[in-house]
Amino acid sequence: MTDAGLALEELAADRALLGRTSTAERVASILRDRIAQGLFHPGVRLSEERIGGALGVSRNTLREAFRLLTHERLLVHRLNRGTFVRRLTEADILDIYRVRHLIECAAIRGLGTPPHRLDEVAAAVRSGEEAAAKGDWKDLGTANIRFHRAIAGLAQSTRTDDMMRAVLAELRLAFHVMDDPRRFYEPYLSRNREILTALDSGDTERAERLLGFYLEDSRRQLVEAYPDRPAEDD
């Protein structure tokens, strides 16, 4: 058999692995979104049997998805105990906000000459205002996350988008253990609108300055109110 034939034979053997990997990535994406939405709360043990049955995937595929999310710091595996949704520490929160500041402020700073494409940012602001009008604080939280993803999306970078999605999903783990979500989202609704207004007028320096103060206030508020809990269950 020629070298080319051997290469094709090896690729054929890899075909099954490729299928499993892509399925695991899709499962990880579903679980990532559900964790971010609060379906699985920090500290909860994830049942392989029940989740695998609900999604109709094999245990091996599910374990690979768990491994991917563990790498993203959304899950933690404990020997002989299973896989759990992580509880964040104060150090985690500080690091998340450090990364957010780097990404979001840089996205605004890198904008060129206006007009800018602000459709996603504007849609997120409107969604937040509609959720607040209905008193739906969970949806307001989701809209707020969407706003910050849209801000990062101004960089028009797939890699930045992927990084921001993971960072914000991890941040939601902190908000899920707070007692009063309205308190942590409602005050920032008008500030989202203010940032959008500055961007729409082409004043990116003001928008970046507003966002920097916003992130600092949010970080401080979250750290001060965060429950004094261990990162992992004993």
Rank of each mutant, 00 (worst) to 15 (best):
E72M: 10
E72K: 14
R73M: 13
R73P: 15
R73H: 11
R73D: 15
R73T: 14
R73W: 15
L74H: 03
L74E: 08
L74D: 05
L74A: 02
L74Q: 04
L74M: 03
L75A: 05
L75R: 05
L75M: 03
V76F: 01
V76C: 12
H77T: 14
H77R: 12
H77K: 11
H77G: 08
H77D: 10
H77I: 07
R78A: 05
R78D: 04
R78Q: 11
R78W: 06
R78T: 09
R78H: 14
R78M: 10
L79V: 13
L79P: 13
L79R: 10
L79G: 10
L79W: 15
N80G: 06
N80M: 06
N80R: 13
N80H: 15
R81M: 07
R81K: 04
R81E: 07
R81V: 00
R81I: 03
R81F: 05
G82K: 07
G82F: 00
G82A: 06
G82V: 08
T83E: 03
T83L: 10
T83Q: 05
T83K: 03
T83C: 01
T83D: 07
T83R: 02
F84S: 06
F84K: 04
F84Y: 07
F84E: 02
V85Y: 06
V85Q: 03
V85G: 02
V85F: 06
R86C: 07
R86L: 03
R86Y: 00
R86M: 01
R87Q: 08
R87S: 06
R87A: 00
R87C: 11
L88N: 00
L88F: 09
L88C: 07
L88K: 06
L88P: 01
T89M: 15
T89G: 14
T89F: 06
E90P: 06
E90C: 06
E90F: 02
E90W: 00
A91V: 13
A91S: 14
D92Y: 12
D92G: 03
I93C: 02
I93E: 09
I93G: 04
L94W: 15
L94I: 15
D95I: 12
D95P: 07
D95R: 15
D95V: 12
D95F: 12
D95Q: 14
I96R: 08
I96A: 03
I96K: 04
Y97V: 08
Y97N: 12
Y97L: 06
Y97H: 00
Y97I: 06
Y97Q: 03
R98V: 10
R98K: 08
R98E: 08
R98A: 05
R98Q: 12
V99W: 12
V99L: 09
V99G: 09
V99S: 13
V99Y: 02
R100G: 01
R100P: 04
R100N: 00
R100Q: 09
H101C: 11
H101V: 14
H101R: 15
H101W: 14
